[in-house]
Amino acid sequence: MSASDADKPSIGSAEAGARPAIHVVRASGVDDACTGRVAIGAEELGIPTRVLIGEDTDAVALAHHGARTSRLGVGVGLAGDRIAIHERHMPAEQAVIVCDVSNDPMGQRPGHRRAGENAARLVVGRPLRLDDIAAGNDTG
């Protein structure tokens, strides 16, 4: 993945005809169980997800790539202990939400599910649930 790929108006490529979905982009080494819980969060609000693997190691960059390639304009990036949620129009370096999930309990992973839910909320236009999450603006 590279910036030029994201910029390409991908007429005729797989993206153009692809089913609209939130793009969940994970760095290598992130557990499938994590992306699975993100997908569950979006599913409860009726929004499909597609999992991609990115080369970047920064959650924000991964999320940005996801947002730029998603027909819904929303991406979630997972790398290390961080999850970022991005939106098509946001400046690349400024995610909508970035959260630390190092303390997310294994098994249910409520932090991951919440991230998926918030990504879906961005799509359907419902207020985000931010009780325990710092908005991305803070981390700039």
Partner: peptide, 8 residues
């Protein structure tokens, strides 16, 4: 080359 716009 024309870029994909970000301004909503």
């Amino acid at each position: 080359p024309a870029k994909t716009g970000t301004a909503p």
